[in-house]
Structure formats: structure tokens, C-alpha cells
Amino acid sequence: MRVVSSDLPGVLLFLPEPRHDRRGLFTRTFDIAVAADHGIDASRFRQDSQSRSRRGVLRGLHGRSGHGESKLVRCARGAVHDVLVDARPGSATFGRHAVFRLDDRDFAHLFVPAGLLHGFQALTDEADVCYRIDAEHDPAADLAVRYDDPQLGIDWPLPVSVLSDRDRAAGSWADLRTALG
């Protein structure tokens, strides 16, 4: 398994090496020793979640206030355009975003440190995204920023087909910056 750093500090992309044969394929999607070698304590993860989205569905941009949450994200079925925004005050990359393609061909696992906003858009007819999260969900700590906020300038590859009421009502990047101090 190769590990690649991102332009956003602390963001890592774990790249498995799927083995293909006439039966199909086998791949290791997570390795606790590899994670530990890169400073991730896998014993901290508390919750596994999964979402299923149809082509064009956009989820995000979401984060958590307070101590936030770290997570490992992968696309188990289909493909997604995955976006992270650095919302860590004091970070040299505060306000910048990074884009990743997660899919069921490469099986990349994206480590998202606490303090980043996360969102994705489904690129295939169906896309299943799996999350391993290191904090129990606290709805009072939820943060959301509009996916199309002009200050962030994120290019989404498809027209948005469906957006949740929560994401439609999300605040601006400027409002979050003010709230973060």
C-alpha cells in the first residue's frame, strides 16, 4: 500500500494494490500498521457509516465544530468527486481546497484530519461512500458551508441533481470564517 500526502497538511491518500485474476480481484483497503506508520491511531475510530448516492447527487460541505472529527473515506461502489476544504484557523492552507477521485477501481482511502470540511458528488449511476469516523456524532457540532460558495471556487464536474435541505440551507464560507474567529 502506497501513501501519498496532499497539499493540505495532514491529508493522506492510501493507495492499495488490488490483485486481479480470473476470479475478479482482492485488495486490502486498510492496514493498521501502515496507518500507524503515518501517525494515525486506528483505535480512535468509533463509528463506521455508509451513504449511497445517485449520479449528480452532492453531499456537503460538512464538518464539525469543537474538536472536530477525523475520518477515513473510501468509495466502495462507483465513483465520486471528493472535495476537502481546510477550515483550520491558523493553518497555512486555511480556505484552500483539494480534490480527489475515489472509486471502486483504485480503492483509495482518504484520511481527513479534524478541522476540514468534506463533500462529494456522485459520478456514477450509484456510488457508495464508506466513512470510518473517530468521534460519535453530535448534531449540535454540525457545520455546513454551501457547496457553490463563490469564495471557495470549487468546480463540481456535473450539474447537481439532488441536494438535501440541510445543504441547500448551508451558510457561506464568510459566515464560517467569522464564527471560527
Score class of each variant (00 low, 15 high):
R96L: 13
A98D: 10
A98F: 05
A98K: 09
V99S: 03
F100N: 07
F100M: 08
F100I: 07
F100P: 06
R101T: 14
L102K: 00
L102M: 03
L102A: 02
D103V: 00
D103S: 01
D103F: 03
D104P: 05
D104K: 04
D106G: 07
D106C: 06
F107T: 03
F107A: 05
F107P: 03
F107I: 02
F107V: 04
F107E: 08
A108M: 08
A108N: 13
H109A: 07
H109Q: 14
L110E: 09
L110W: 09
L110Q: 06
F111Q: 06
F111G: 07
F111H: 15
V112T: 03
V112W: 01
V112G: 01
P113H: 00
P113V: 01
P113C: 01
A114D: 06
A114C: 02
A114M: 03
L116I: 05
L116W: 03
L116T: 04
L116V: 03
L117W: 10
L117D: 06
L117H: 08
H118L: 11
H118V: 10
H118N: 15
G119R: 02
F120V: 03
Q121T: 00
L123I: 11
L123F: 11
T124M: 04
D125S: 10
E126S: 10
A127H: 12
D128V: 06
D128R: 01
D128W: 01
V129I: 14
V129K: 08
V129W: 08
C130D: 12
C130Y: 07
Y131N: 12
Y131G: 11
R132H: 11
R132G: 10
R132P: 00
I133W: 04
D134K: 05
D134F: 05
A135G: 04
E136P: 12
E136T: 13
H137C: 09
P139W: 12
A140C: 05
A140D: 14
A141L: 15
A141P: 09
D142R: 07
L143H: 15
L143V: 15
L143W: 15
A144S: 15
A144V: 11
A144K: 12
V145I: 10
V145S: 11
V145Q: 10
V145R: 10
R146P: 01
R146N: 01
Y147H: 14
D148E: 12
D148Q: 04
D148K: 01
D148F: 04
D149F: 11
P150H: 13
P150F: 13
Q151P: 00
G153L: 00
G153A: 03
I154M: 07
D155I: 05
P157K: 05
L158P: 10
L158I: 11
L158H: 12
P159L: 07
P159C: 07
V160R: 08
V160L: 06
V160P: 03
S161N: 12
S161W: 10
S161K: 11
V162N: 12
L163G: 04
L163Q: 07
S164G: 13
S164L: 14
D165H: 06
R166L: 05
